[in-house]
Nucleic acid binder design. Structure first.
Length: 585
DNA sequence: CATCTAACTTAATCAACCA
DNA sequence: TGGTTGATTAAGTTAGATG
């Protein structure tokens, strides 16, 4: 199986632009997923991120995999008894992803795109991701929510099929109650975000519809963490037969949203401060192949996708797989599924404000982001008018460098990450995919997990950079977003390293001292990766799992392993930047 | 070509934030 | 406290990868 494409998405023909390239998981990856699934079919963000890093795939892919897996299992075992998730207990202790703050200007961009195309394909989403600096998966969710709440015209059937005309529809508005009014669109188009639009009018329409709807559907559900179980069967859709249609054409956003051209995008990059929210606590350094930095919007380097980079290279670069020790990274390190109460964030303060974004805000890569993502917490989420005015005028809001409070304190990722994660897992399960029928597993056996010798960090970087040339390194965890960061003219190694570390022109710190990971490095030889541990323990040993496909994937960028950057380090980086407004004020 | 399964969609909810 | 809206889940569909 996994043979050919080694792990990645196929490079094949896909309509680029419409759907994301299908990811082909390797056996070893599946085994790992399977093992975790048995332990906890409902992993929280921390666990998903870990897994993603370990597997070299984007967190969003992990999430989808779990979704599909749950579904499959359910079907299979159709035992209504709910074996799964008893809810209540079980897994629910893990935190969910922190809410992503979307600024007004980002909203504006999204809204514009939405009016043009309610069902943007992967290419369009990625483009939006680049423009806004919001991870592609978040964009996808945004569209999902938006469609649900702004039922424009006809509903489309259950499937994904976009209605015919879909694209067209953007403009059309039926007058469904829920439909956004023309006015609304006008407003939106003009740059005023509806959401926060003060104007009661327009936006209101749809909101009203939504309210009604809500009223009509009182939430019955019960409680419980997560909605899960509560809902009855069904729901599903129903109706409508969609006509499968081709999905959209050109990425709308692109074409039409000139104003936001990447280059000049709006806010021309807000100074880091904004950009990196301060809070940004976690930013990941890539450990691998592609990985490159950042969780913060990287605005530092603009990389353009070189043609080369985009090419699906046939030969995937050797996968640099790196194992990232969980280490500090995720907040939740503690037992993931164990309800541990504090497990998740460092008790630190929370970022209440800034949410540390779990994922890289950045678009992966590429682009200059426009907005720093979330507004600084302190700022009132939207300054609304001002913001709007600025946005409208093209002045773009730069965001105030907000003094971030504490920077987010939260930040700290540094939880020591116990290897226990794995240990517990293994012990608990015995791992193996016992239940998993997966034929694969067995097959794999044999090989080894990974890391042959676990290359040094530097080595990995080198590899990564190498690869970078042909592939896109991924930036954030979400890498999927696609950023391709291609390093343009093949910069020197040093440059690349700098880029990787997110330090732009700075005199790069040597790796050793690299600010990036001072404390921990992703690839510390000594720390085994989750997968590795699992494999070893379970004896699943699998094939040399090489590469994360990520590297290979063009689009991709998948996230790759990243290591978190400590706040201090982050600050240091900020300091190094020329215009950086001071770090936390 | 059939099967498996990643990717997506809608709908319903939960939950963080803000006024 | 309620409204808005991001995140998650279930259920169903579409379509790429494989045998």
């Amino acid at each position: 199986m996994a043979s050919s494409s080694s792990s990645s998405t196929s490079g094949g023909p896909i309509a680029r632009g419409s759907r994301r390239r299908r990811l082909v998981l390797k056996l070893s990856q599946k085994d790992t997923l399977q093992a975790l699934f048995q332990q906890n079919p409902y992993p929280g963000i921390a666990t998903r991120e870990r897994l993603a890093r370990e597997l070299g795939i984007a967190e969003s892919r992990v999430q989808v995999w779990f979704q599909n897996q749950r579904r499959r299992r359910l079907k299979q075992s159709r035992s209504p008894s709910a074996n799964m998730r008893q809810d209540g207990e079980g897994a629910p202790g893990e935190a969910r992803r922190k809410r992503t703050a979307i600024s007004p200007s980002q909203t504006r961009i999204l809204v514009q795109a939405f009016t043009r195309d309610r069902f943007p394909g992967i290419a369009a989403r990625e483009e939006l991701a680049r423009q806004t600096g919001i991870p592609e998966p978040r964009i996808q969710i945004w569209f999902q929510n938006r469609r649900a709440r702004h039922p424009q015209q006809r509903a489309r059937g259950p499937g994904n099929a976009p209605s015919p005309g879909a694209a067209a529809d953007a403009g059309a508005h039926p007058a469904l109650p829920g439909t956004a009014s023309i006015l609304e669109e006008f407003v939106e188009a003009t740059g005023i975000p509806d959401t926060q639009a003060p104007s009661p009018g327009a936006a209101a329409d749809s909101e009203i519809w939504f309210q009604n709807r809500r009223a009509r559907h009182p939430q019955q559900s019960a409680r419980g963490p997560g909605n899960v179980r509560a809902r009855g069967p069904g729901g599903a859709s129903a109706t409508t037969a969609p006509a499968p249609e081709d999905r959209r054409a050109p990425p709308a956003v692109h074409s039409t949203s000139p104003p936001l051209g990447p280059s000049q995008t709006q806010e021309s990059m807000p100074p880091l401060a904004a950009a990196a929210p301060l809070g940004a606590p976690t930013f990941w350094v890539p450990g691998t192949a592609s990985g490159v930095c950042v969780g913060q919007p990287l605005m530092f380097f603009v990389i353009q996708p070189s043609p080369m980079a985009l090419q699906p290279s046939e030969k995937p670069p050797p996968p640099p797989q790196v194992a990232v020790p969980w280490a500090a990274c995720s907040p939740a390190d503690t037992a993931p599924w164990q309800p541990g109460p504090g497990a998740i964030l460092p008790p630190l303060q929370p970022e209440t404000h800034i949410r540390r974004r779990p994922e890289s805000p950045v678009a992966e890569g590429t682009a200059p982001l426009l907005e720093p993502q979330p507004h600084p917490p302190s700022l009132p989420r939207s300054t609304s008018l001002l913001d709007e005015l600025l946005a409208a005028t093209g002045i773009l809001e730069t965001q105030a460098p907000s003094p971030e409070p504490g920077a987010d304190a939260g930040v700290h990722p540094a939880l020591p990450d116990p290897p226990s994660f794995l240990d517990e897992l293994l012990e608990a399960t015995g791992l193996g995919s016992s239940q998993a029928p997966s034929p694969g597993a067995a097959a794999d056996a044999g090989a080894h997990p990974a890391l042959p010798g676990t290359p040094s960090f530097l080595g990995q970087l080198l590899e990564a950079t190498d690869i970078a040339a042909s592939q896109a390194p991924s930036l954030g965890p979400y890498a999927d977003a696609g950023a391709h960061l291609a390093l343009p003219g093949s910069p020197s190694l040093q440059d690349e390293l700098l880029a990787v570390t997110c330090i732009p022109g700075s005199p790069g710190p040597s790796l050793g001292s690299s600010p990036v990971i001072p404390g921990y490095h992703p690839a510390l030889p000594g720390s085994p990766s989750l997968l590795e541990e699992i494999m070893a323990a379970s004896s699943i040993q699998d094939t040399p799992w090489s590469s994360p496909r990520a590297a290979a994937d063009e689009e991709g960028v998948e996230a790759i392993l990243e290591a978190p950057l400590r706040e201090e380090d982050y600050q240091a980086l900020l300091d190094m930047l020329p215009g950086s407004p001071g770090p936390r004020a």
